[in-house]
C-alpha cells in the first residue's frame, strides 16, 4: 500500500508559477477571482474535468503548478468562452486556458500519444509549409502519429466526404509562402530580443 499525503503544504507551492500566471496576457485579473463558480456552472465540459475552471483558477494563482499543468481540464477546454462572458470579475479565463496549454506543451506535461498537442504542432507545421490548412491532410497527419486504427475507422466517413467534394486531395497553398516564413521568423526574433 502506497501512502500519500493528501493535504498540500505551503512549501509545495511554486511562487514563480503564481507570479507567471498573474503577469501573463489575460491573467492580470486572476487575483480578483471571487471563487463564485459561475465559470464552472457555465462550462459545458466541467462535468468531465478533474479540476473545474473555478478550482483551476484558484490552484494556479496559488502556484500549484504540478496539479494545474497535469490537469485534464486544460485539454478539455474547447475555447467556447462561456465562462468569460459569465465571469463577474471579467477574468479572461479562456485565454488563461490557452496560456496553460502553451506552458504544458513547453514543459511536456501530457501523456504520450495524446492527440491534442500533436494536432496543435502539426497544425503549425502545415501553416509554415503552406500558409493554409487542408483539413484532410491535417487529420491524416495527426492520426498517423497518435492512433492509426482510428484512421481506418474513419475512412468510411472520409470517403463519403470525398465523394461529396468536401475532402479535396489537393493541398491548399498560398502564393507568397515566403511572406509567411518571414513573418514567423520575425516573431521568433522579436520574442528573443524582448524576452517575451
Amino acid at each position: 500500500m502506497e501512502l500519500k499525503r493528501t493535504v498540500k503544504f505551503e512549501a509545495d507551492r511554486d511562487p514563480e508559477f503564481a507570479r507567471w500566471i498573474s503577469h501573463t496576457v489575460g491573467g492580470e485579473r486572476i487575483r480578483h477571482c471571487l471563487q463564485c463558480g459561475l465559470c464552472s456552472a457555465s462550462c459545458p465540459l466541467s462535468l468531465y474535468m478533474d479540476y473545474t475552471p473555478r478550482r483551476l483558477m484558484h490552484l494556479s494563482r496559488e502556484g500549484f503548478k504540478e496539479e494545474v499543468l497535469s490537469s485534464s481540464s486544460i485539454w478539455l477546454c474547447t475555447a467556447c468562452y462561456a465562462c468569460m462572458v459569465e465571469c463577474p470579475k471579467k477574468i479572461n479565463i479562456t485565454h488563461l486556458m490557452y496560456a496553460l496549454k502553451e506552458r504544458a506543451i513547453e514543459e511536456r506535461f501530457y501523456p504520450k500519444r495524446f492527440p491534442i498537442p500533436v494536432m496543435a504542432q502539426q497544425f503549425c507545421r502545415m501553416v509554415r509549409g503552406s500558409g493554409r490548412i487542408t483539413e484532410s491532410w491535417l487529420i491524416v497527419r495527426v492520426f498517423l502519429r497518435t492512433a492509426i486504427w482510428r484512421l481506418l475507422s474513419m475512412s468510411g466517413l472520409g470517403w463519403k466526404l470525398f465523394l461529396a467534394g468536401r475532402m479535396p486531395a489537393k493541398k491548399e497553398k498560398i502564393q507568397r509562402q515566403d511572406e509567411i516564413v518571414a513573418l514567423l521568423d520575425s516573431v521568433a526574433e522579436t520574442r528573443k530580443e524582448l524576452a517575451l
Binding site: 490557452y98 496549454k101 502553451e102 498537442p117 496543435a120 504542432q121 497544425f123 503549425c124 501553416v127 516573431v187
Partner: peptide, 8 residues
C-alpha cells in the same frame, strides 16, 4: 489551435 501553441 495556433493560440494554444504559440499565441504571439
Amino acid at each position: 489551435t495556433y493560440l494554444s501553441v504559440d499565441e504571439l
